[in-house]
Design a protein around this nucleic acid. Structure first.
Lengths: 196, 196
DNA sequence: GTCTATATACTGATAGAC
DNA sequence: GTCTATCAGTATATAGAC
């Protein structure tokens, strides 16, 4: 659909929007949606607030753009389709936590849990989809005989996801007093028939 | 120190402040600190914004007042001093979750994880103190022989707390698709030598 | 203790020149 | 595509009458 564009112009616009997204990430991740100001984002991206609104017509549009950009990026990084449990765990352990990204996730998820928040639907949807992905990973582990028979996949998925969310918050508060990978392993291990 | 006050006046002021705290809880819990407005709080408490500021001289003071009020209440309800692990778990299970309270905790904890947030220090402090309380509960369980020898109390405490935080967020998003008590039990059980 | 009125600042969004 | 200028709305906080 967007084929046959004059190369130079398009690339420049894309680059500009990327700058804006980066700036938006920085601001939203430290102030949430309500606390953020478009002028602040614009200043960081090196253009005026009106200039910003040319690319993203409202604050809500911008937040959604930042969010979907990061989600797609994360999905791309984790790899599609759904990886198996040990691989996913190892990938998670290897990934360096970026304060900005973790804060965006934690703050916007919390804000978005309220029904009338502009991004509520999106947060809901994403949560369900990630949960489903994790559940499928557990089910595949079960089929592969890596999971103890008495473990319920849905419950395990909920637990694992809750744990990750909680640990990320802890890491934000006390980056050095936390052992995410270790705590995850120790919580998961009793459910498995194989070593993590 | 605050003895010998004329009863009537004092009680009336206290009641007024309590109304304001209730209103503040309602507003802060659905909009966080940044999204909340003092006019909104004042309106719900049935007085003007200037009237509100007479009792709590700034937005920050009000948030702190709401927060400490709720914390004290929670501590009082859970019982001091630190209860043992099975008792605490059972109390937790019995406590009905109030959307307002859970949201206040989740949203303000998330917002407060940022260093320059007005309540950052408070969130940090409270997190550490709760974590310490849970750790002590595990250590007492260990002494009582209720804990498996290979379980590290600090790690278990972090994990349990992270799990609680994460499950509360999940409950906000999908109140019916969650089994907090069950998930908690299934996660804790492998560490214990007794049945929960 | 509560009010009205107000100071001051910042918000998101729009209009229109270039 | 970017800007300046501006609008209308809202924010917290203060001043001072009652």
């Amino acid at each position: 659909m967007t084929t046959r564009r004059r190369r130079g112009e398009y690339a420049q616009t894309l680059a500009r929007r990327q700058e804006i997204l980066n700036a938006g990430l920085a601001v939203f991740s430290s102030s949430g949606f309500h606390g953020a100001s478009l002028r602040d984002v614009a200043a960081r991206a090196g253009l005026s607030q009106a200039g910003l609104l040319h690319h993203y017509p409202s604050k809500e549009h911008l937040l959604k753009a930042v969010f979907t950009w990061r989600d797609d990026e994360a999905r791309r990084q984790l790899g599609e389709p759904v990886p198996d449990l040990p691989t996913a765990t190892r990938t998670r352990e290897a990934a360096t936590l970026t304060r900005e990204l973790v804060q965006l996730h934690v703050i916007v998820s919390a804000e978005g849990s309220v029904a009338d928040h502009p991004i509520h639907g999106y947060v809901l949807e994403r949560h369900a989809s990630v949960l489903e992905m994790v559940r499928r990973a557990f089910e595949r582990a079960a089929v592969a005989g890596e999971l103890r028979r008495d473990v319920d996949c849905a419950s395990a998925a909920r637990t694992l996801m809750a744990l990750m969310d909680g640990l990320q918050l802890q890491w934000l508060l006390h980056p050095d007093a936390v052992d995410i990978a270790g705590d995850l392993r120790r919580c998961l291990q009793p459910w498995l028939t194989v070593d993590l």
